[in-house]
């Protein structure tokens, strides 16, 4: 057992969390530099623990409230997150033992303690298919991202056809629109369809082909 695992059982200081965050970014850096992020366990030759996969899936199902999460997707998501946030994934798996009593998402969150942020990370990943706020982050789900489920009676998953041409002129479902969940207003949404201001960039090295234009030597062969 590695020291970091034993450390996972104690609450972390903010410094430790910051360190782990940076470690996560470093991991993204390393993987993207190689363009070789192992989101496919089979291709990565992972020695994945079946128990951890089961734990991760079980906690995810309670957390998201979705009983039908795909085990294959879960395994790939756990693997991808382990590459970036190994500590958080361990925290999630550890929560599997609490599921007898934490039978709902709310109970799980209330009882999360130090794993609170980890749960939000994993929850977000299930909903959006990758980690939040990371440019060019690895991703594992598009149409299977859970964010499309609460609206599937009304909206297509973009890029996929929904029904015969012109279907959208029908009246959409106008019921089941809840009241706001909280008085707090989140930050405004980014404008759609344009680049308002360049979004926050994670500190990553540009993939190949996106070179800087500052000081490149002239190597052209002008024969004339």
């Amino acid at each position: 057992m590695t020291p970091s695992v034993s450390g996972a059982k104690t609450a972390h200081s903010p410094e430790r969390r910051e360190f782990l965050r940076k470690a996560g970014i470093t991991a993204i850096l390393a993987t993207l530099t190689n363009l070789d992020f192992p989101v496919d366990p089979a291709s990565a030759g992972e020695t994945s623990s079946g128990i951890e996969d089961e734990q991760f899936l079980a906690v995810s199902r309670v957390l998201t409230g979705c009983r039908d999460l795909d085990p294959v997707l879960s395994r790939r998501l756990r693997h991808a997150l382990t590459g970036v946030f190994p500590e958080q994934v361990r925290q999630i798996c550890a929560l599997a033992t609490t599921l007898d009593t934490n039978t709902t998402s709310d109970l799980l969150m209330t009882d999360a303690g130090a794993a609170h942020d980890a749960l939000l990370t994993v929850n977000a990943a299930w909903y959006i298919g990758s980690v939040r706020n990371r440019t060019n982050a690895p991703m594992v789900a598009y149409a299977d991202a859970l964010m499309y489920r609460p609206v599937r009676d009304a909206l297509p998953v973009p890029t996929y056809c929904r029904a015969e041409p012109g279907w959208w002129s029908q009246t959409p479902p106008l019921d089941h629109i809840a009241s706001p969940e909280t008085d707090r207003a989140p930050p405004p949404p980014p404008p759609v369809g344009v680049l308002g201001s360049t979004p926050r960039q994670s500190a990553i090295i540009p993939p190949a082909g996106r070179s800087s234009f500052s000081a490149l030597p002239r190597e052209t062969k002008d024969t004339r």
């Binding site: 409230g65 749960l119 909903y127 964010m147 609460p150 089941h176 809840a178 969940e181 989140p186």
Partner: peptide, 28 residues
């Protein structure tokens, strides 16, 4: 589609489970 910005905002509120689904649907 308003789903990605709605989700981003609902996640920023720290919601999970049914409450998250309701908020995504409302905002979308």
């Amino acid at each position: 589609s308003r789903v990605p910005p709605a989700t981003e905002q609902a996640l920023a509120l720290g919601l999970t489970g049914d409450a998250l689904d309701r908020e995504i649907r409302r905002r979308a």
